[in-house]
Amino acid sequence: MSKGKSKAHGGITSRWGGFFFVLPSIIAVAIFVYGMIAWTLNISLSNKNSSAVHNPKFVGIANFTGLIHDERFTHAFGNLIKFTVVFIAGTLISGFIMALLLEKGIKGEGVFRSVYLYPMAISFIAMGTVWNWLMNSTHGEGAAGINLILAKLHLSFLQSDWYVSPKSSMYAMALPAIWQMSGYVLALFLAGFRGIPDDLREAARVDGASEAKIYRYVLFPQLSPTFLTVLIILGHISMKVFDLIIGISGKTYITDVLAVYMWQVTFDFTNYAKGAAIAMVILLMVAIVVIPYLRYVNKSEEYN
């Protein structure tokens, strides 16, 4: 919890409060979010495995157990995990380093900060071709994109196959995602740093702590709520990743992830039940990440 929060409170709690003002939103969310999740859940438990099924029957979790033996599903699932790990770690680290560099204030900070946010403004529908070019896999002669830049910097040994090699494909796909989100993470961490009262730093300094120790023992622990927040935001973006994959590599086996496979199963194979089951798996994964966090947020607010 950041200390600055403590003076505001929960306002007024009464039986009805402002209930009626929120009611329209409650209804909308009930229908469009939960109603439609329920619809999807319902389909996922039925045998609507092709558009020829007109009166679907309840078949329990058959569609889910079927997924376990589906090689494409496990492949997409594994890809998603790889992508998630690299994307979260990469974005966290780069955003954190950027925050460290800016944290003490520096001339031109505003410029750096805003430019670092620009990637958030552009969609991957627009950036797809550019990223595909940048991640061209040709080595040595005829290299293009990032491999060409590496060659010019005499770093040819770093040249990569990017997403066309099965070993590196998902790690490479994480790169554009890191590019897009690290500015946002920087902003969150910067807010975290600036939210730490100066006296803490000063006190440590008076005690004769080195700068490194101040960071390690005084500042970093204060950032753990920010860290958690960032983790959640990135985690749920990662589980749902779709535009980025479609924009850069298209529906290619090697970069398959759950959201893309779900799209194919639902709309190309018209296997609605299986598609819905995959959607529920994505939702479940998001829920596992998000629900504990929401509980944590709720709890920590009670202390105020």
Partner: peptide
Amino acid sequence: KWRFRGSKMVFTLFLFGMFIPYQAI
């Protein structure tokens, strides 16, 4: 500021709505 009974629950349920994959609906 004008909480009602269950408003926390409502808020949490709203938040969860941020995280659904839209293809599913």
